[in-house]
Amino acid sequence: MTDNELIKLPVDYLPVHVQASVRETGLVKWLLIIISTLFLGFFLFIPLITVFAEAFRKGIAEYFNAFSDPAAIAAIRLTLITALIAIPANLIFGLAASWSIARFNFPGKNILITLIDLPFAISPVISGFIFVLFFGLQGWLGPWLAENDIKIIFAIPGIVLATIFVTFPFVARELIPLMQEQGNEEEQAAMLLGASGWKTFWKVTLPNVKWALLYGVILCNARAMGEFGAVSVVSGHIRGKTNTIPLHVEILYNEYNFVAAFAVASLLAFLALLTLAVKSIIEWKYKHP
């Protein structure tokens, strides 16, 4: 049933004086839609357009020029490496956590769910900072790491760790509520039909949560590639070595190299649009299985 039907249908049944005021809702409706559109336009749409407008301000050649910079290429590479480690790590965790939480009963379950969500509640700067405290020179493991010549902070491992931390809950929090809602009768049925635990998981559990899983992964990916605060604290900003795409954007912007900054930023904006598109498709798929 569409919303239009909901509003139009009752009109015929209402007394005349009420019908008039129902027609007024049409006015209210469009007023609210216009307010929303203006608000979203100012706060969301214009910033989005600005990224692309600024990126192409000096033409296409200048736009692509930004990507010939070796530092930009290095930043893209590092971002991809980081995402390629962080996503599988959090994916495996998400599957393990959702299986243990949604398929079994044990005390303290709600506390565990809250703890899994914890990284979302923590400021990105603090998320990075805790790793500096742990692995940095003045940190707990710092002296030992320095002795053995292992670099974590101001190096790639630190960036990966901070990224894993900030994207930690994404997959798990998509899977847990869905699997709890679906219940485990299908898995019980599969096992009684002779399937082993693994086969039950691969053939029954996974296909039932595949869209939620994909959803969690694309959100995790968007955040992993775009994380700024946490990564900024642990990276050390060594150009060409420990800069991810967002950090590279920051450097270019602070050097007043706006076209290049927005050109590189447009990559991330494009990724965001792709994420939103995939998300919309998944939501549609979920409603029309």
Binding site: E185, E186, L192, A195
Partner: peptide, 17 residues
């Protein structure tokens, strides 16, 4: 429970959706 060849029909059938 698996491999015992026990056929169990659930009240709400538990068909693989």
């Amino acid at each position: 429970v698996y491999g015992k060849r026990i056929g169990f029909v659930f009240q709400h059938y538990a068909l693989f959706r």
